[in-house]
Design a protein around this nucleic acid. Sequence first.
DNA 1: AGGATCTCTGCTCATATGAGCGATGAGATG
DNA 2: CATCTCATCGCTCATATGAGCAGAGATCCT
Lengths: 311, 311
Amino acid sequence: MEEELVMVRVAELYYDEDKTQDEIGALLKLSRWKVGRLLTQARERGIVRIEIVHPRARRLGLERELVERHGLAAAVVVPSPDGDDGTLERVAQAAADYLTAMRPVPRTLGVSWGRTLRAVAESLPEGWATGVTVVQLNGGVSLNRRSGGAAGLAVTIAQRASGHVSLLPSPAILERVETKQAIEADRTVAAVLVEAAEAQAFLFTAGPCDATSAHVENGYLTAADVEELARRGAVGDVLGRYIDADGNIVDPQLDARTVGVDLGRLRAAQRSIFVTAGDAKHDIARTVVTSSLCSVLVTDETTARALLEER
Amino acid sequence: MEEELVMVRVAELYYDEDKTQDEIGALLKLSRWKVGRLLTQARERGIVRIEIVHPRARRLGLERELVERHGLAAAVVVPSPDGDDGTLERVAQAAADYLTAMRPVPRTLGVSWGRTLRAVAESLPEGWATGVTVVQLNGGVSLNRRSGGAAGLAVTIAQRASGHVSLLPSPAILERVETKQAIEADRTVAAVLVEAAEAQAFLFTAGPCDATSAHVENGYLTAADVEELARRGAVGDVLGRYIDADGNIVDPQLDARTVGVDLGRLRAAQRSIFVTAGDAKHDIARTVVTSSLCSVLVTDETTARALLEER
DNA sequence: AGGATCTCTGCTCATATGAGCGATGAGATG
DNA sequence: CATCTCATCGCTCATATGAGCAGAGATCCT
């Protein structure tokens, strides 16, 4: 279209050449107002694209859409870098920023574990808050792995806020229900579970339902177990509990052997912050968001767009 | 840097959220002026990138630099599309636009030939000018190829301007000097050459010095000839004449067998428009521009940047 | 320490810009 | 052919914005 060409010329003069709309009007024999209108159209049609390029940039438009569509309290969306990698770091940084800015500062913060949360912990600056007690929400890998395990992550978060940490000294999933009940009956474990359930804020991730899951990696489940769960409709796990697309527990037996706070607690919580990054987790992310497991979502642009697609 | 983060937030609120600088100031507890300054910095540092995405868009900044650096009368630079191809078409379109807008309209226009100029011809709209006589500048491929040859191109340009065309009925390069002289002595040929030399504007391209050259394709030279020319310093040809990086004729013997106007005419011309697209032609383009063979340059962004690199 | 220089801040004021409105004209419709 | 409808135009006016400047710190160099 002819009009479009004029729009391009006008946009060039305005944005590249820093001419005033008046000047452009004189130059192209258009009224000042016509120029202004063309500029508006050019922006609307996407001929003029204004982009904020920065690792810490956010996608406020997508955030707003997500909040509206899924009834969230807040959403944080960071642009996915072109060259694939770095997404996890950006999302983690954004989550750290969100935590740091969060008011009121929670007295106790319940955390799960995983690579994503580890990255969040590392991104938190020293002194991100003061006097926050960090509580583990679900059982996890052994305590003695120096900083690699679930414990290290919680410790880091607490340390950087000069706060305390309550670790959950239990495996994620036990082989027998009886053992699980016995462990939960243990004073120290029970106390932590109560503390966790009552946390003022939750920070958690979710895992996809495939062989790359941390549960397989740590030996709590076999690849075959996970496959079977997937066959029965599981899309991933939250706090070690495998759920289907509607957010329901897939295997109650398995769930009964899983140590950690109930998913209901997340749903009931005022502030339950869900952090997720990467294409593999779109399905489980959708479930978490649509079944109200989180009130705050921190994620990357690609995931955000996936969550906004119909159905 | 901390400052940078604020810049990003400010930019987001301003450009994505359409907030006023006042509002942003209130929100972030900054003075209105601070916000304005941050915005300016963000643009300067490239955190805010404003881009005009359109096949007909131009790179005015690069154009200005080229004009200044190389003492051109004008330059037209179009963005190179991401997905490689389409560059030729865009450049051709831009050249066509330039011709259409050119004032005063030349009475006679001298043209060379090549794939690039063919594309320019095809991009010219019907009635791009009126009464322009088109003259061929150099000998070329046979007349009978319907629209594929050099003749068709000139005819197209002339037809769309409701003008005449003067074809140069001669091969590009002859085998013997004597034949060349005989041909030039021919009334019809001589008349066209005079007309061409006196054209009010020139439109030409250049070819790289490699086996893909149109001269090889059309059998005027062998691949071995071209190789030898390159060895002797040739970077490409203009109007069939092979020149080195300084714009000097590489092989006077060969040049004496080449039919077409003298390169001096291009240098002397008020308006000699050089159209070039594609990475293969950077070297010859540089030569054309630095040795003042053209006064107007039409090209793609990649070539433009290459021409602006030091040395 | 004292002064000199530089940078940064918040201001005034002129200018650039967008919202809203009535006038105008092109095309549709009876 | 008359009239209606709707988009578009150029305008007024309120508002948003950038240039330029004087004062306040910060920094540097004897």
